[in-house]
């Protein structure tokens, strides 16, 4: 701990906000700003990026002279399995089809908890897949292909 109190969380927040502002501002560079009659596509985003930077700076500055609060644990395992599940579903739903894509996505998500044993995760994924296929594909007739072109031979 340094001598002066500072809120590390807010320092990080301020810096990230400013970084986001710079990113949006940079993306706005190529856009036309326009005039007050015909505001260009860049007018509003530019103003907002500036505003976000300012707010980020204020958050950053106010973080000094204040006590830190505990940051807590980070759900690394959760992030490693939860976030890829929808991405995987998105990547495979057209190729593999609805049924296998959903099964695998549920199986991936099930790995996120240490409390769920692998076999139980598998059973859960099978149940979710069957139930969803019955509800959405057969029941509601959603126009998803159950098995996609990658599985045709």
């Amino acid at each position: 701990m340094s001598a002066k109190p500072k809120d590390r969380t807010d320092i990080a927040t301020g810096l990230l906000l400013m970084a986001a502002a710079v990113f949006f501002g940079w993306q706005t560079m190529g856009l036309e700003i326009g005039t007050s009659l015909r505001m260009g596509p860049g007018y509003f985003p530019m103003v907002l990026s500036g505003l976000l930077f300012l707010l980020g700076l204020l958050v950053f500055l106010k973080a000094f002279g204040r006590e830190d609060e505990p940051f807590g644990k980070v759900a690394w395992r959760g992030m490693a399995f939860i976030l890829p599940a929808p991405v995987f579903f998105g990547l495979t739903v057209r190729g593999l089809g609805f049924v296998p894509a959903l099964f695998l996505a549920a199986l991936i998500a099930a790995q996120a908890s240490t409390r769920l044993k692998p076999l139980h995760g598998l059973v859960l994924a099978v149940i979710v897949t069957i139930a969803s296929t019955l509800i959405f594909s057969y029941g509601l007739g959603l126009p998803f292909r159950r098995f996609g072109p990658w599985l045709q031979f």
């Binding site: 049924v99 099964f103 598998l122 059973v123 099978v126 292909r145 098995f147 599985l151 045709q152 031979f153």
Partner: peptide, 20 residues
């Protein structure tokens, strides 16, 4: 094994959707 059954189901289902 649940998995084997599932694999079987997968194979069977793909046969049904053979190229038209």
């Amino acid at each position: 094994m649940a998995f084997k059954k599932l694999l079987g189901a997968l194979v069977a289902a793909t046969m049904l959707t053979a190229p038209a």
